[in-house]
């Protein structure tokens, strides 16, 4: 139990009702352990982001169960009204674009969530500087995101996702806007973070080249989520 980071049981997501009912996920069951980097793959429109948003306590499932760590957070209904608090304390998000707050500088972007969690400015700044040094962008701590390159901004976004010391990182196509070389660099970085920080990472990706870096693969097939081992050369997408 100590290794469990995300557990999903018979998760269902449907939109609409009656004739306009659209089923997206019909019974997802999977487990992701701490320290694992897991790829989530499926064709466009298959429900990858929807699944990610349900795990991230953003979108409400139709039914099923979700555990984050040992805590059962969803059992056919949210078991807490404070889903935003769960996100703030347990989850880090990384997006396709960096989505940094443009009016905050790098260190403010990184420390925003931890300061909101009640961590002192001094403590959160110190940890943020450690992260920025880890990502080799400490010299940009007081720059605005508009003054950074795309790759630097993405590293700041990853640092932000780690700043609240999350148990889980949900990454929605974090390499989609990057070239292959930078994509590999980012995924290697995520793998290292997963191991170093003992964090579970689910990464949505369309890029087969990123799969060998993952521990296993979740694939949405016919509205079911199927777990696969990492293939050596087969085409999954």
């Amino acid at each position: 139990m100590a290794k469990q980071a995300i557990r999903v049981e018979n998760l269902i997501k449907r939109f609409g009702e009656g004739d306009s009912l659209v089923s997206v996920i019909e019974g997802a069951d999977f487990l992701v352990n701490k320290g694992e980097l897991v790829a989530l793959i499926a064709p466009s429109g298959a429900g990858k982001t929807t699944l990610l948003m349900m795990i991230g306590c953003v979108a409400e499932p139709t039914s099923g169960k979700i555990w984050l760590g040992d805590e059962l957070v969803y059992d056919n209904e949210w078991l807490t009204k404070e889903q935003r608090k769960i996100r703030r304390e347990k989850i880090g998000f990384i997006f396709q674009a960096h989505y940094l707050i443009p009016f905050l500088n790098v260190i403010e972007n990184v420390t925003l969530v931890s300061q909101t969690n009640g961590v002192s400015e001094k403590e959160s700044n110190a940890f943020a500087m450690e992260l920025l040094e880890y990502f080799d962008i400490a010299d940009k701590a007081h720059n605005l995101s508009s003054e950074l390159s795309g790759g630097q901004n993405q590293r700041v976004a990853i640092a932000r996702a780690l700043a609240n010391k999350p148990q889980i990182i949900l990454a929605d196509e974090p390499t989609a806007a990057l070239d292959t070389e930078r994509s590999v660099s980012v995924v290697q970085m995520l793998k290292k973070i997963a191991l170093d920080q003992d964090v579970a990472i689910i990464m949505v990706t369309h890029d087969e080249a990123m799969l060998p870096f993952c521990d296993h693969i979740l694939k949405i097939e016919n509205k079911k989520v199927v777990s696969h081992d990492v293939p050596k050369s087969s085409k999954l997408i």
Partner: peptide
């Protein structure tokens, strides 16, 4: 609005 959605997504409370 984009930034506000991001803030809400990463857990910043409405009050802030």
């Amino acid at each position: 609005m984009k930034e506000i959605s991001i803030m809400k997504l990463i857990g910043i409370p409405n009050s802030m």
